[in-house]
Write a protein that binds this DNA or RNA. Structure first.
Length: 319
RNA sequence: CGCGGAGUAGAGCAGUGGUAGCUCAUCAGGCCCAUAACCUGGAGGUCGCAGCGUUCAAAUCCUGCCUCCGCAA
C-alpha cells in the first residue's frame, strides 16, 4: 500500500518509540541494537518508587539515554504532543506506553502507528493482557503487532506470535517470554509492513474480550473462587505485587504455589497440611500447596522455613 | 522527618539484666528390606554496626547509624 516497488529499508525510517516499563525497554533495546533509527523515545514521567519515594528513571528512559536518544515524558500526551511535529517521524511504535495516544498523534507519521499488544487479539484488549492470560489459566497467549486507531486495541492485526504458557510460568516469566516474542516479531515483520506485504486483518468483534487493570483490592485472594482460579491469580500477581491472604490478622503473600487437586471440597481457607511434606490449604473446590510465601514484615521464604518458625498452623484458617 | 514490623548458628524462630536456646538443615554413628521416618552424638553465634553509654552484670536498658520487609504514596 505504500511505495510498492520502491525498496525502503525500515532501518532508514525515522522511528519514534513510545513505551515505559521493563518489557518495553527490552524491545527498545533490541531495535537499537539492530540499528533501527529511533529518533525519540516517549515515556511516562518518572515516578517516585519504593519506601523512600525516590524518583527513579523509567526503564525505557534508561535504555534511551544509553544510546543517546532524546526522551520526552509528557504528563498528558493527549494535550502535549506538538513536539512530535518537529521530530517528524515516519513511523511510531508503541509498546506498553501507559497513556491513550490521541488521534492527533496517530495522523503524524506517514507509515502510521503500530502497537505491540501482549495478547493474541481480539482476546484481552486492554491494560493487563499478560496477567489475565494467567488468571484465566490460558495455555497459549502471544503478542500482536497491530495498527493503532482511535479505539483502544481495536485496529487491524498485521502479525502475531504465539507464546506457550507453562504451569511453571508466573507473571515475571511470562512478561519475559512476551518480551522475547515481541522482539522477534519486530525484527521479522516490520520490514514486511513497510513493504506493504502485510494486508492486516480486522478483529472479529464477536471474539473481543477485555482485561482491565488489576486493582489493589484484587490482590487479596478471593476464597470464593476455586483452587484453579486462585492458582491463576497467584501466578498472575507473582512476583509483583503478590497475591495475599490473612492468617492471624497478618498479611501473607503467596508467591509460588501448586494446584494439587481441583475438586475436593471443604472449608475454604482451612490449612489441611502443614509439615515437611507440604503446606496446603483448602478452597471451595480443590486445594493449593504453597511453596513460597512472605509474612508481613518478613522477607520471602520457602514453606519449610516458614513452618519452622510458625508451628501449630494445622487446622487454622486463612481469610 | 508519612505509619509500622524486623535484624540472635546455613535457614526459620524463642529469649525484655545474670555465664546463648528451640526446630529444620548439616556431619558422624545406630535402627530398618528401606526412608524425607526414628534413636544417639558432634560441629557451627564476638546476639546488624558504633558508643570505649547506663550497670557489679546487656542479646536484653539508653543514644546514633546501616540494612531488610509490610502499609501509605
Amino acid at each position: 500500500m505504500y511505495n510498492i516497488g520502491m525498496a525502503i529499508n525500515v532501518k532508514e525510517l525515522r522511528i519514534v518509540f513510545m513505551g515505559t516499563p521493563e518489557i518495553s525497554a527490552g524491545l527498545l533495546r533490541t531495535l537499537l541494537d539492530n540499528k533501527y533509527n529511533i529518533v525519540a523515545v516517549i515515556a511516562q514521567p518518572d515516578k517516585p518508587v519504593g519506601r523512600k519515594g525516590i524518583l527513579q528513571k523509567v526503564p525505557t528512559k534508561v535504555v534511551a539515554e544509553e544510546f543517546n536518544v532524546p526522551v520526552y515524558q509528557p504528563v498528558k500526551i493527549r494535550k502535549d504532543y506538538e513536539f512530535l511535529e518537529e521530530i517528524n517521524p515516519d513511523l511510531i511504535l508503541t509498546f506498553a506506553y501507559g497513556q491513550i495516544v490521541p488521534e492527533g498523534v496517530l495522523n503524524i507519521p506517514k507509515y502510521g502507528c503500530l502497537n505491540f499488544h501482549g495478547s493474541l487479539l481480539p482476546k484481552y484488549r486492554g491494560a493487563a493482557p499478560i496477567q489475565f492470560s494467567l488468571i484465566n489459566n490460558e495455555k497459549v497467549t502471544g503478542v500482536t503487532l497491530m495498527e493503532m486507531i482511535k479505539e483502544m486495541d481495536a485496529g487491524k492485526m498485521y502479525a502475531s506470535k504465539e507464546v506457550v504458557i507453562e504451569d511453571s510460568d508466573n507473571s515475571t516469566s511470562l512478561f519475559k517470554k512476551i518480551e522475547t516474542a515481541s522482539c522477534e516479531l519486530a525484527l521479522e515483520k516490520l520490514q514486511d509492513y513497510i513493504d506493504g506485504k502485510l494486508p492486516g486483518e480486522e478483529q472479529d468483534v464477536s471474539k473481543v474480550t477485555f482485561c482491565p487493570t488489576i486493582k489493589p483490592e484484587e490482590e487479596k485472594i478471593n476464597l470464593d473462587l476455586s483452587a484453579k482460579e486462585i492458582w491463576g491469580w497467584i501466578r498472575a500477581l507473582s512476583d509483583e505485587p503478590g497475591a495475599f491472604l490473612y492468617l492471624n490478622n497478618l498479611k501473607i503473600k503467596i508467591f509460588k504455589a501448586l494446584l494439587i487437586d481441583d475438586n475436593s471440597t471443604g472449608q475454604p481457607g482451612e490449612i489441611i497440611k502443614a509439615d515437611k511434606s507440604g503446606f496446603v490449604f483448602q478452597t471451595k473446590c480443590g486445594c493449593i500447596s504453597i511453596l513460597e510465601l512472605q509474612k508481613e514484615g518478613k522477607s520471602r521464604m520457602d514453606y519449610k522455613s516458614f513452618l519452622n518458625g510458625n508451628q501449630g498452623l494445622l487446622g487454622k484458617k486463612f481469610n
